[in-house]
Write a protein that binds this DNA or RNA. Structure first.
Lengths: 140, 140
DNA sequence: CGGGATCCTTCTTGATACTG
DNA sequence: CAGTATCAAGAAGGATCCCG
């Protein structure tokens, strides 16, 4: 019922139902989630492999991200009761379907991050998008 | 030079350059940014229109988001020195190029948020992706 | 090896009040 | 109308220590 109803307007995508976008975004829009998904794209990986593949992540965030993804049904967690504990994580079909979107974002990021960087540098100089006025006065 | 170099591997997308992704993601991965971009998709809008179109946003976040987007060169800000101040925001070409990626995410979200929701509900019951053990154990 | 539980610091965000 | 300036609450994240 609350689906993507057909809007008669021009290009109006999400009427007033921004809700579900924010909901989904709050999960997969997070950087670690994105990186985790992309890292799992090639195939299943173990906890330590993931941690190694995602440089800046802490085990706290990795664990949390992994659990969220598992709870959302985007990945599966398989624990092998071996002597040296081994746990493998793998994308589910649902998770794989997200890959495309993630790739789109990633590709865009790869293609334009240079442009964005220079834009930011410029506005930094011209003071265009200047913000940070509040709390900046911590001259104490 | 740090672009999407061709990797010879299987599906390896981002070598060890997760950096730029996180960088871009930190800006456009944010929910307000996504919503703002999508809201501006149809065409230019004024500040108040944007605020009205994005229900939960506070003027602080709207202003901040708008400035970030402007600084990144994703939108343009045009102020008309009229008696009732009027400022219009519009996507730039760069901003429009992001639309696709945003749409991809949005579409995916629209298509699967229901599925995700039920998955989450299930794991909530089965305790699969259960986290929040800390402080939760007030069962003493 | 794979986490679970904690502590503590920083960043983010919302509510509010004021201005050109 | 279109922001700007502050403040305080809360969430997010990192570093640690510990266990099975």
């Amino acid at each position: 019922m609350a689906a993507v109803r057909q809007i008669s307007g021009p290009c109006r995508l999400w009427p007033e139902d921004n809700a579900f976008i924010r909901d989904v975004l709050d999960r997969i829009g997070d950087k670690w989630t994105m990186l985790t998904i992309s890292t799992l794209s090639p195939g299943s990986l173990r906890y330590s492999d993931l941690q190694a593949s995602i440089p800046g992540i802490s085990q706290r965030m990795l664990t949390q991200t992994l659990k969220h993804l598992e709870a959302d049904g985007l990945i599966t967690r398989t624990a092998y009761a071996e002597v040296p504990p081994r746990v493998e994580y793998e994308l589910t079909d649902l998770g794989r379907s997200l890959q495309d979107a993630v790739m789109a974002m990633a590709s865009w990021a790869a293609e334009h991050h240079g442009e964005i960087a220079s834009n930011r540098a410029s506005s930094e100089l011209t003071g265009v998008g200047r913000l940070r006025a509040a709390g900046d006065a911590a001259t104490t």
